[in-house]
């Protein structure tokens, strides 16, 4: 599976990272290098193997339903690059 320029652009779009035209070829080469490297997994037989997704092997604890957090809009907004009153703001979205 080799990654072409169009795929690099599509992936960059999905990842919301602006990629300049001149970067595309370099990125494609680097990403193909990594994909080529990980392709050695093709030789492993995993028939009947259950995937391991988490780092911990136990069942999940459940929390009690009580309000213990929130009511601190100022702290929530303190790091905002831009705000209007107690709202975060972004460029206007047209739907």
């Amino acid at each position: 599976m080799s990654l072409d320029a169009a795929t690099v652009r599509r992936i960059a779009k999905l990842a919301r990272i602006r990629v300049e035209e001149e970067e595309v070829a370099v990125l494609a080469a680097e990403l193909n290098g990594i994909l080529g490297y990980v392709a050695q997994l093709d030789e492993v037989d995993v028939t009947g193997v259950e995937p391991l997704s988490g780092g911990a092997q136990m069942a999940m604890r459940l929390r009690d339903d009580v309000v213990t957090d929130g009511e601190m809009a100022e702290k929530i907004l303190a790091n905002a690059p831009e705000r209007s009153g107690d709202f975060f703001t972004v460029p206007k979205v047209v739907e």
Binding site: V38, L41, V44, V46, V49, E50, P51, L52, S53
Partner: peptide, 8 residues
């Protein structure tokens, strides 16, 4: 695939 090899 990677998750399965991780299990191995």
């Amino acid at each position: 695939k990677a998750q399965k090899v991780r299990a191995l």
